[in-house]
């Protein structure tokens, strides 16, 4: 862990945003020999309002859907210069990864470029104002899964299993991380940085603005996401899956749902909460 800071304060993130915590600590682990590629999104906008920057490592943003391809270009370029040990880290949101950027990410994983791709998953298009993405969970309100007389549930589709999709590319390392479980997070980032090839990390990213909770409660809400089993912590090394955190017994999902305004409409909808509980239990029954 490096004592220096490579992502510095003064940026414009919302109060209570979890993303700066994630980025700051990833870079403290990776150190100065690191290139960062950032997809269009909250992080890019709040950290680089010209002429300011929060980044003390080389950083590039080009567009929304192509961070994996941009990173491929840097990988090719620095290898030709003999920089064989520098890190290339992508930070991209769930929309930039699971939706619009899936093609480029799949292409990079197939080519096996030496890139650590970190998806910060705040579970919606937060930068454009809380629109649903394929990573938005079942039952969540967003501005494009509105609640009304004809829709009492919110988002009616399940979250896209992006980590499974990346594991299916036979990449050497994939993991889920949650900064509220810091040691687990730190160990996985370290491990991922020590492996060659394309590595994928799905980082839960609490968002008080979009999840509708008090900005002081971000870490608590994120803890609940994992303790309820909704966001399990695991890693897949060369195809071998290992659960890295086990809560026994798991906290009921209702405890996670009731602290977030995006699930307000479900508070008394026991059928939907039971369904979400059943889905979580069904996933865990395999592990």
């Amino acid at each position: 862990m490096n004592d220096n800071e490579y992502f510095v304060s003064g940026h414009k993130a919302c109060a209570g945003c979890s993303v700066p915590i994630l980025v700051r600590w990833v870079l403290k682990i990776a150190g100065p020999d690191t290139f960062v590629v950032n997809a269009t999104g909250c992080l890019e906008v709040f950290s680089t309002p010209y002429p300011y920057t929060s980044w003390k490592v080389p950083w590039i943003h080009t567009a929304f859907e192509n961070s994996a391809a941009t990173a491929t270009g840097i990988d090719a370029s620095i290898k030709r210069k003999g920089l064989l040990n520098a890190h290339i880290i992508v930070f991209a949101g769930d929309g930039a990864t699971s939706d619009i950027g899936l093609q480029a990410l799949s292409g990079m994983a197939e080519r096996g470029n030496d890139v650590l791709y970190i998806m910060y998953d705040n579970e919606a298009y937060m930068n454009t104002g809380i629109q649903r993405s394929s990573a938005t969970p079942y039952g969540a309100w967003t501005t494009t899964s509105e609640i009304g007389t004809e829709n009492l549930i919110g988002k009616k589709e399940k979250k896209k299993p992006i980590t499974d999709i990346m594991v299916a590319h036979n990449i050497p390392y994939a993991a889920t991380v949650n900064i509220a479980f810091f040691n687990d997070f730190k160990d996985k980032i370290k491990k991922a940085l020590g492996i060659k090839g394309t590595r994928f990390i799905n980082a839960l990213a609490g968002c008080p603005t979009g999840w509708k909770h008090d900005p002081s409660k971000t870490v608590e809400v994120m803890k609940l996401a994992t303790r309820t089993g909704i966001f399990p912590l695991y890693e897949v090394v060369n195809g071998q899956m290992r659960i890295t955190y086990r809560q026994d017994p798991r906290i009921p999902v209702g405890d996670y749902i009731k602290v977030q305004g995006r699930f307000k409409h479900l508070q008394n909808n026991h059928a939907v909460i039971d369904e979400i509980q059943k889905n979580v239990d069904s996933w865990w029954s395999k592990y």
Binding site: V45, T48, P49, Y50, P51, T53, K56, P58, W59, H61
Partner: peptide, 8 residues
């Protein structure tokens, strides 16, 4: 280190 492609 430089920041390339910031928003203006």
């Amino acid at each position: 280190p430089a920041t390339l492609g910031s928003f203006a």
